[in-house]
Design a protein around this nucleic acid. Structure first.
Length: 81
DNA sequence: GTTGAGCGTT
């Protein structure tokens, strides 16, 4: 299971996300899809952690929280099709 | 601006 992170600042980096989520567990991977046309992040990303419990803790702690000046949207990601 | 990509072998 991975986590969807939305409403991100457009200059956030995967390192920033890793640091924030690492407070709640081990971050296995972070993805920040970029727009092919502009090369900029699209304002959302995905985080994978080492256990579902850690993911739940991170979601609980960060969903709706202010981070880098924005109110984060954090929840379990849908399986990628 | 709200659910990725990998890919010619992860």
């Amino acid at each position: 299971m991975s986590i969807y992170v939305g409403n991100l600042s457009y200059d956030v980096t995967d390192a920033d996300l890793t640091t924030a989520f690492a407070e709640y567990g081990t971050v296995k991977s972070v993805k920040l899809p970029t727009d092919r046309e502009t090369g900029r992040v699209r304002g959302f990303g995905f985080v994978e952690m080492s256990s579902e419990a850690e993911e739940t803790a991170a979601i609980d702690a960060l969903d709706g929280a202010e981070w880098m000046g924005r109110d984060l949207r954090v929840n379990k990601a849908k399986p990628r099709q």
